[in-house]
Each structure stands twice: as structure tokens, then as C-alpha cells.
Amino acid sequence: MDLVRVRDDVWGREVLAGVSWDLLWLVLTAAFAIIIAHLLLMAVLNRKARPSAAGKKLARHAGVDRAFHWITAIATIVLLVTGVFPIIGINFPWLTPHWIAGLVLTVAVGLHVVRSLFFQDPLAMWIAPSDLKELAGGDVKTAKYSLAQKGMHLGMAVVVLVVIVTGLVLFLAIDTPWWNRTNSIDEATLGWLFLLHGASTLGLVGLTALHIYFGLRPEKLFYTRSMIKGWISEHEHAAHHDAARWSPEETR
């Protein structure tokens, strides 16, 4: 199995063409293996009952952040469907929805970056040394975000930023309503861009699969609810979070 695709350029020189799409199956297989392993583990552990969703509602995600999340999610799904389906042989006119979704994602991520850096606590998502004790296992109560959530965010942040940056450069290489392509990117550079775009796509495929899985896990479902409705219950907070590190306000 190849890791990358190479091709001859216009003058017969071997250049990178992009990531090998064989890796797509590897990534999907790995993601499903992790999911199945996790399912089995959770079945064996047979955790105790989950905290009640009743009681006081504590604010977890502001409306604007939830909107950002779901816009990003939809854009990502559209990007993955339009980007990956043609590769696996499901053909449809994908390019226009792909770049439109890419622009939506770019704007959403851009706003999120600005908001989180300047209007929110940028360290809330940063992995602190104190988070690392979660690695030891047991029922460690976390700050607003668990190490796993921070890890997922960090991973997503890296692949999404790479996919956006490379996507934007590649966007210059197609015709759009605003410009005609110039072919000014040489083929070797183009190959690197496609490699990074493809590799980050693979990362996105894997992370998205895991993200969706964990979002649908019964014991994590309240987080997904919080991403829809904005709150968690006081019991959920007490069960998973350290009030000293994160004490959200009550909300309606």
C-alpha cells in the first residue's frame, strides 16, 4: 500500500500528486476498530447509572457557539461527502458544493478563532498539565472540557486548519465566479498541497467518525444535548466536573 500518489509532471519529472486514497480505507478501518474496542470496553465495564438531567440547568454553550458548532459540522459533512464520495466511485457534481461548504467552514472557523481568542477564555480548551491526571483513569472530575474533549478539539483544529489553508490555495486553482484560474502554482507545489489537503481530509474522516461516535454514546449524550440546548444539569455537572475548576451559571 502506498502512502502517497506520485505522477509525472508536464516535463516527465516525478512529482507528488497527493495522498494515496488506499489510506482512506485504513483510516476508516482504524476508526471503526477504535469504536468497536470502545463499545466492548464499555460493555465490560458496565458503568453505573447516569446522572439525572433534572434539576437546575447550568449554562455550558452559548447560542453563538452552538451555532458555530453545527454550522461547522454541516460544512464538514458536506465537505467530506463531496470530497470523498467521488473518490470511492460515487459520482455527482461535487466541486461547487465542496468549495461553497469550504468557504462556509472557513468563515465559521475564522469567527470562532477570533471569538475564542479575544472574547472567550482561550485557555479553556488548552491542555493544561492538570488535565493529564485524567490519563491515569478513574473518575477524575474535569474542568469545563475533559482531556479527551480537548484532545479531540486540538486534533480537529489542526486538521481543519490544514484543510482550510490548503483548500483556500487550491481554490485559487479552479475557476470561480470571481476569477479564472492562473495555473501559477507549479506542479510539485500543487502535489504538496493536495497531499496536505488529502492527509488532513483523512484525519478529518477519522476524527469525525470518532467524534460522532462519542457524541452518540449514552453516557456522553448530555454533552450533545448541551451542544443543542446549551445546558447541562446540576447532577451532570456534579458527576463529571470539578466545581473548583468550572462552575457554570444557572440558566433557564
Partner: peptide, 18 residues
């Protein structure tokens, strides 16, 4: 040539001096 139609990443025909 390894253009889009041949599975590549570029169209040589539709370029500024194609």
C-alpha cells in the same frame, strides 16, 4: 500528460496561455 482527466491535479488547456 497527467491532467485532471488523467487523474492529476491540473488542466494545461485552460490556463493563461493554453
Amino acid at each position: 500528460l497527467n491532467c485532471y482527466r488523467a487523474g492529476g491535479n491540473i488542466c494545461y488547456a485552460d490556463s493563461p496561455e493554453g
